[in-house]
Amino acid sequence: MNEILDLIAGLLVVAGSVFVLAGGIGALRMPDFYTRIHGASLTDSLGPVLVLGGLMIYAGLSLIAVKLAAVMLFLLVTSPTATYALANAALLSGLRPEGVEKTSTDPETPA
């Protein structure tokens, strides 16, 4: 039983690191700044959830799991905020996205 749980936890952590690694590759090979953010945000969404979630299964029900949950919650709240601040600062400074089609001029944008 314990071995199975450990195996699941290990698989989750490795899956998370695969997403993180793919995000790193994306941040390196995407063509322009805004698409690179998409690559980097890959490392900020499911990667931490899987890695820290897997570690929580390793830890079992304990104070360590609560701490891991706190770290995960903090990362999930702050990383989109930091990303938004970064993208917004770049936009305001006049850095234009490349090769973009703008579909927002339609009068009836669904809410």
């Binding site: 941040a27 980097a40 990303t83 970064l86």
Partner: peptide
């Protein structure tokens, strides 16, 4: 901004 993005990552 690319650099800040990378450092944040």
């Amino acid at each position: 901004y690319d650099r800040v993005l990378a450092v944040n990552m």
